[in-house]
Design a protein around this nucleic acid. Structure first.
Lengths: 139, 139
DNA sequence: CTAGGAGCTGGAGTCGACTCTAGGTCAACC
DNA sequence: GGTTGACCTAGAGTCGACTCCAGCTCCTAG
């Protein structure tokens, strides 16, 4: 997907992920990174490929509405290593339900919007036609 | 869908829609009801079928992530009557794009989650199998 | 050697969308 | 006629998720 680079600055990661540097630091405070970010001698964050990969997973989860506390919990479980698989599975299954619910809602909304868009397109076509044929005066 | 009733109290509407009475009043303040709600002689809100119908539409839009300001704008346009169809159409088309984007994100997330659920199910099956055959000690 | 730019921290501020409180009205039941 | 319960208003509070600020340290280019 992306080339493997040895170390990335927070700014570079921001650019890669689309998050702001603020948000990256915020996520770190919130315990959302798998391992506490390494630092260079000057105390600056150095991100590695695995951090970026993990962030990418988190972004997908966030983008589908998983709240930060749930992502933190999941992160903790992954960090804790083996023995936590059952809870991770549970968390993921719960989230899957919520994702499916959301898809359902979106489908309903899409139906509604498609219907209404159709209605308004017709209305506007009518208006265009009648004004073109001169049966309508201005406005 | 639902029987037509002459007048509903805010509590009844809350029950019908799943919104709290607080939220109903809040939405009204926010200008999200098509017509300012009628009142009985005592000053209490009396909702009619059209209010409930409109609320239902709004809920679908909200549930698909349309922000309140956009819903308010749409409401204003509907209230303003004919002549505003073009803008309504624009609003709806924009929202449709956002809905489609969200569906895409959700699909990506669902793929990820399905994959991970599969992995963890396998891991747990393995564990169960090996502990059943006695090749594993406790924990 | 200094000016700029990217990072750092701790903490404050913002924003959207509710959610609740205080203090009051009103009709109905016991 | 007192109490309950649903409703009213104005305004305050909460919560999640950022987003920004002040004041500092480094490094690099001019």
């Amino acid at each position: 997907m992306s080339e493997v680079v040895p170390g990335l600055s927070i700014g570079e990661v921001a650019e890669h992920t689309g998050l702001s540097v603020h948000t990256l630091r915020f996520y770190e405070r919130e315990g959302i990174l798998a391992n506490p970010v390494r630092r260079d001698p000057g105390g600056r964050r150095v991100y590695h490929q695995d951090d970026v990969d993990w962030l990418t997973v988190c972004l997908i989860l966030r983008g589908s509405g998983m709240p930060l506390p749930a992502i933190r919990r999941y992160t903790e479980l992954v960090r804790a290593g083996s023995g936590t698989e059952a809870e991770r599975l549970m968390l993921l299954r719960e989230h899957r339900e919520r994702v499916l619910d959301q898809m359902d809602q979106l489908r309903k909304c899409l139906d509604l919007v498609n219907f209404k868009v159709g209605v308004y397109e017709d209305v506007l076509d009518q208006l265009a036609a009648s004004s073109a044929s001169g049966t309508d005066i201005g406005r």
